[in-house]
Structure formats: structure tokens, C-alpha cells
Amino acid sequence: MRTLIFRTVAPFLSSLMILFSVFVLLRGHNEPGGGFIGGLIAASALAIYGIAFGVSPVRRAIRFHPMALAGFGLLLAAIAGILSIFSHVPFLTGLWIYPKIFGVEVALSTPMMFDIGVYFVVFGSITSTALALEERERD
């Protein structure tokens, strides 16, 4: 879309949405949010960027093919399940570690890793669809 206002706003809007999607993703463990909705927000951010500037800048900006990102997410989710084998608990059991980073206790867990995997799967697959649809429109 060639309107000046939209093209000026789109980069800010997109980066804000990506940031917000990460916030929603991390918030999701205890409160509304999570990987699925976070991935959707991130995918909409790229869709907006794509509408403003065209598909190729988006593809260049994310470096990897969106489907590869989805594959990465799936891998991450599967690994989050496998990790339980090393603790001798059944598959997909939630495992927690609490490292101190700069004096602050940070809770890291396999459910979070799984959720990040979901985030990437949703982000990758929806972005892939959205970009394909936006591309069609130009041809």
C-alpha cells in the first residue's frame, strides 16, 4: 500500500507488535497469553510490514524461510519433551531450573521451552501463509 502515513507507521507498529508478542509469550505461563497467541501477534506484525513494503523486504528481514522457523519450533517443542528422559520422569514432564542471573532468580522450564516452540510453529506457518497470499496479489 502506497500511503505515506501507513508506510511511516508500519515499521514502528511492527516492531512494537513483535515486542508485545514476546511479552505475551512469556506472560502466558501463569496469566492469559502463551505461545499460540504470541505467534499470531508476531505473524500479524510481519503481515502489516509486508502490506506496507512488499513481501521481499519481509523475507529479507526474517532471514530464514518461515517454514524453516516453524520446523525449528517443532524441534524445540519435541526436545522440551525429550529432556525429561534425563531426569527419569515420564515424557513431557515439566522440569524447572532457577539460575541466578545478575542476582535475580529466573525460572526457566521445559513448559516455557515448549511454549516458545509453539510460538515459532504458529509464527512460521501463519507468516508463510500470509506472505504467500500477499505475493499472489501482486502478480
Binding site: 517454514m67 519450533g73 517443532l74
Partner: peptide, 28 residues
């Protein structure tokens, strides 16, 4: 703790997903 061999019941599925994901990442 479940015996190590019991993981075989989920192993085929996990292997499928892990390698499916790797294939997806190297699709080109």
C-alpha cells in the same frame, strides 16, 4: 521413575517429529 525401556512407547512419535522438523528446516 519409569524404566528406561518404557520410553520406547513414545520413541517412534518423538523420532518422527524431530526428523520431520529437521526435514522442514532443510526443505530447500
Amino acid at each position: 521413575p519409569p524404566p528406561m525401556v518404557d520410553y520406547l512407547v513414545v520413541a517412534p512419535l518423538v523420532i518422527g517429529f524431530v526428523f520431520g522438523a529437521l526435514c522442514l528446516m532443510t526443505r530447500k
